[in-house]
Simulated assay, not measured.
Amino acid sequence: MRGTTGFNRILASIAIIATVLVVLVSGVLLAENAGHHCDCQEHCPVCSLILQCEQNIKTIGSGLIAVATVIFVAHAMTELVTAFEYQSVQTTLVSQKVRLDS
């Protein structure tokens, strides 16, 4: 079980790095091609690249809002649960000091 947690952490780290790289590369490509003007937008590879980069940033941006909301709710729930003090309410004959030699 301990090995799977390490593997899951590695996968999560790779996913975060990939997401950051996609956003950075898309932003750089949009900045480099900001002054691009062409007449035929249907067959222009630069226009399709710009459109794809815009879609990447929009998709990841809306996904980050959902992830931030889930993290906030999970953090609030863990704070709420850890605020309670749990006490054992199990009673046994020994804890009640009942004599068993009748």
Rank of each mutant, 00 (worst) to 15 (best):
I16M: 09
G6W: 00
Q96C: 09
V94W: 09
L11H: 14
H43L: 00
R99S: 06
S62F: 11
E42Q: 15
L64E: 01
I10M: 11
E42L: 14
L29H: 05
K97S: 04
E79Y: 11
I16P: 06
V46E: 05
Q55P: 01
D101M: 10
D101H: 07
L51G: 12
I50W: 01
T69P: 00
D101W: 15
I71T: 01
I65W: 05
H37R: 15
V98E: 12
A66S: 13
N33T: 02
A74L: 02
L64V: 11
C47K: 12
L29Q: 02
I71A: 12
C53S: 03
E54M: 01
A12D: 03
V98L: 11
S26C: 15
V25E: 11
Q41A: 15
S13F: 03
V81M: 08
F7G: 06
V22C: 13
T59W: 09
C53T: 01
A12K: 04
S95N: 13
V20Q: 11
V98S: 07
T92A: 02
I60W: 06
G6I: 07
H36V: 14
A66D: 05
L100Y: 07
R9P: 00
V70E: 05
Y86P: 15
V70A: 05
I50A: 03
V94S: 15
V22W: 10
N56F: 02
T59E: 08
Q96M: 14
A76Y: 12
S13K: 05
L49I: 10
I65Y: 12
A18T: 05
M77S: 01
A12W: 04
L49Q: 04
S26Y: 06
I65S: 08
C44G: 12
H37W: 09
A12N: 13
K97V: 01
D101L: 15
F7A: 13
R99M: 02
I17Y: 15
S48R: 01
E42I: 15
